[in-house]
Every structure is written in structure tokens, then in C-alpha cells.
Design a protein around this nucleic acid. Structure first.
Lengths: 250, 250
DNA sequence: TCGGTCACTCTCATTTAGAGAACATCTCGA
DNA sequence: TCGAGATGTTCTCTAAATGAGAGTGACCGA
């Protein structure tokens, strides 16, 4: 322990300043494809690259509150629609050189939002755009945001297995088919409609019936579907497991 | 946005300083009971209370590296034994009032260690003690460390379901019975020995046989058991699921 | 030497998941 | 208006995984 470390043990101000930010991996599903909220950076470093929405945590603000505030500022969301967005902490990123300006530790958050109307111009939501996740492959993101997004997507896939959070991508009332589409989009492969139906209805507290049905059948035909809303379960038991993915296991 | 916020958007130093620390929830299993590494605080605030080992992140140090360093300092571990300890990020805690002195954001980490000899006196590992987790109920920990420990224990229980990390609580070679004891301790209930045995051997990459057996039977009788070491799987598939816990689901 | 413990294997019943199909209802275009 | 095709929902059959119980034999300590 050198002298600086020794002093710092008593007074962290003996170290160079550290800044704490939040970044948000906000996901939604639009036109059957996963979309991610991104901002085009206007300034150095990484000017012109896409980056996650985020910013400094304010002195009187909890971490999740900061993430919600950033999300609200960038999307123009507020009130009930904002309340319907699920936000949770994802992980923290603090490699010493992740930002060339200074030591910045970012507390990344993960958000699941229903398909929202685009932020109206004139609000703070200047540059935020919902970008299809599929377009991100090989596209460079600012800082370590590529890694953060990858971690967020993997977390999202896992969360759908054992939580009912898939419903957060949908309107308050939804059909089993719409719910299945969420799973297929996030997991990236087709599911057996009949088995999915059976499973969803068999997991206690996942969905509850509204008694109503859709006004019309699907755009390409088919009968009207029954409408459900999210149930009171916070965890799915037994979980909906993804098929084995041998490659990721080892 | 007030003027301070406005300035801070460009220069975080316009805000009061924020400090970043790491705290470590280090778990081990000793005498068939889960133990947690704690330190008795010598100074205010919370002098005399038990607290998690932790400290400030140094300028050139990654977050996990800081956690490993703190763990090493407090346990006196080093080299190969330290390398066998599993350390992963748990979550970040940043409520504005969690430390009365200043705004401190703590990146909590979770560590799984094999049963280690107690830190020898004379090292830096002054005050760190392995405390049985069972003794913690109702005992007050410093700051929000009670919540951090609770989150860490829940994460540990979940991790044993879908990762082979239970092996990190054991020596490099272990018997199925010892592995089962880890699960029983962390999950807090008995498992069916025969079914557990079948399951562990059927999950690809969980354990691999050494070909050897223990020198002697168990202390209370029974045959010599075959020895295994950890396999190459990073995820267990299919997972070892805990029995349903109805109460935690809703 | 004996009772008891434990590793390991096996059987059987139950539950859960995978696959395919039946059937009714609906949309859309011919 | 009619028919093709799509979809929601339910069912059947099979395979796989799990829970529970028991048997066998090695081993310890008394």
C-alpha cells in the first residue's frame, strides 16, 4: 500500500475523481423485431457513433431512478406509459480505460418497453432512435456499449425463461399468440404454438383471462383470440426453458 | 434541469464527489454450514457492527480486480488458492443516503471459496472472520450490507441451479456426496441422494471422473466413494432445479 | 463380529415437454 | 359469394425428466 492508497483509505478524495453514470439498454419489439434505443453522439469522444442513452447520477437520486429519468428524457415518456416500462439493474462497467476522459463507472440498466410511438420532436428526446437489434451486428457502438448491449440481450433472453416480463413488451391486454411472438423474437427461434399455449396457461400466475376476445381475427386470417393480462406471479414456476444451446454451454 | 444539473451534464465535477467502492459477499462452507466473511468495524459510522469486506476502487483497477484484492487482503489468500475462488459481480448499491459520510456507490461482488484455513495472524487479514450465515438472522449489519448479503445468498442459490459453481466450494477432487452437501447447505433442504447422483452424472460436463476413490469410507461408515473433478461445462443443461417454493413466487 | 451409514444402482409412477394433427373461425382475394 | 390459407385452441401420443422407494454391498466404529 503506497501513501496515496493509505490516505485514500481514509479519504477517497485523495484519489482522482470517479464519475458514476447510468446507461440504459432499452428494448422494445416493433414489427416483429427487437429494437434498441440508441443515440447518435454529437461530441468527442466517439462523435458520430451510436451510444446508449445515459448520464450522470444526480446527488439525490437512486440508481434506478437515474435510469428511469434518462429513459424518460430520451423517449419523452411520462406518467402511466413510463410506469409500464420495466427497468432493472443490469450490471456495472468500470474498466479503467473505458472512457478516455476520466474514470467513469457506469451502472447499466435493462428496460423492457411496449411498442411506443416515436418520441415527438420538440421534447428533450432529441436524437434517440429505436434501432433494430439485427442491424447492430458488426456496427460499432461507442465506448464498451457493444458489450453492455450483448449482456443486456442475454439477460433479456434469460429473464423470459423464469419471469413473466415478456408481458412488459405488450399492451395491458394481449393474446397468447402475441406473447409467443415476443418469445420468438427475443429468443430468435420459432416455438410450437400448441405447446406454448398449453405451457403459458399451466404456469400459475403467468396470465389471467380477461374474458374478452379480440375484435377481429388476425390480419392474415384465423379466429378471434382470447385476451389475457399479466398475472400476479413474479417468477414462473416451472419456468419456460429455451431449447438447449449446446454451443453456449461449454 | 437546474443550473447545477446543466453544468454537470458537461462536467461531473460540478456535482459533489461520488466515491466508488467494492464490497464482497464471500461464502464458504465449513462444518456443513454456510459461512460469510465479515469484518467488525472499528470506526464510525456503525462502529462495532459487522460489515462486508470492501474498500475503494483504485484508479488503475478493474471492478472485479478490486474485489479480488479486497478478498486477498482480508483473507490472506494468494496465488493458487486465491485463483480457485470464484468471484463475480453481484449488483450495485447506490441509495443516496446509504452512507452518512458521502455519496458512495458500492459494486457488490459474490465469491465462492472452498473451506479455507483461517487467515493467519500477522498478515493484513486483521479482523476478517468467517461467520455462520445462520447466525446473521436478526443481527444488524452495517450500512445496507444486510440487503447485500440477502441478495448474494439468493443469487448463490440460483447460481447452483444452472451453473457448476457448487464445485467451487470444494477441493479440486470431490465426491458426489460432498457435492450434494453443498447443494443441501445452500438451498437449505435435503435432497434425494439417489436422484441427485443420477442427475449430476447425467448433466454433460458437470463433473468428470478421476478414476480414483477416497482412501477411506466416511467417518460414520459407508464404502469409499468415487472422486470427481469439475467438468468443462459453464452452464448446466438441463439445470438442477430447486423444488418449487410457492411463497417466493408471488 | 455386528449394527448402522453411505455410495451407487435400479424400478416404478408421475410429471413435463416435443411433435403432430384435428377442427373451428376468421381474413382476403378471386 | 366462395374457397384457400392462416391462426387459435384443444387433443393425442411419445419421449424425456423427475420423485420416491428400495436393494446391494463396502466400510466404520464399537
Amino acid at each position: 500500500m503506497n501513501e496515496q492508497d493509505f490516505l485514500a483509505a481514509y479519504d477517497p478524495r485523495a484519489y482522482p475523481a470517479v464519475a458514476v453514470t447510468v446507461d440504459v439498454v432499452a428494448l422494445t419489439i416493433r414489427d416483429g423485431a427487437a429494437h434498441l434505443l440508441l443515440i447518435r453522439r454529437g461530441e468527442q469522444p466517439h462523435a458520430g457513433l451510436w451510444a446508449l442513452p445515459g448520464g450522470f447520477v444526480r446527488p439525490d437520486e437512486d440508481l434506478v431512478a437515474a435510469a428511469r429519468r434518462e429513459l424518460a428524457e430520451e423517449t419523452g415518456l411520462d406518467g402511466e406509459p413510463l410506469r409500464r416500462v420495466h427497468v432493472e439493474q443490469l450490471a456495472s462497467y468500470g474498466a479503467p480505460d473505458r472512457d478516455p476522459r476520466m474514470r467513469i463507472v457506469s451502472i447499466a440498466h435493462l428496460a423492457f418497453a411496449p411498442d411506443l410511438p416515436d418520441a415527438t420532436a420538440g421534447t428533450d428526446a432529441d436524437e434517440a432512435v429505436w434501432v433494430p437489434v439485427a442491424e447492430l451486428t458488426n456496427r460499432q457502438l461507442a465506448f464498451d456499449h457493444g458489450q453492455i448491449v450483448a449482456d443486456g440481450l442475454e439477460r433479456a433472453r434469460a429473464k423470459l425463461e423464469y419471469t413473466p416480463l415478456a408481458t412488459r413488451f405488450l399492451a395491458p391486454e394481449f393474446t397468447i399468440g402475441e406473447l409467443r411472438a415476443v418469445y420468438e423474437t427475443v429468443w430468435g427461434h420459432q416455438l410450437h404454438a400448441g405447446n406454448f399455449h398449453r405451457k403459458v396457461l399451466s404456469v400459475p400466475g403467468f396470465v389471467e383471462s380477461t374474458g374478452a376476445s379480440t375484435e377481429r381475427g388476425g390480419t392474415r386470417g384465423g379466429p378471434r383470440a382470447r385476451l389475457y393480462r399479466a398475472g400476479d406471479a413474479r417468477l414462473l414456476h416451472p419456468a419456460l426453458l429455451r431449447p438447449a444451446r449446446e454451443e453456449t454451454v461449454r
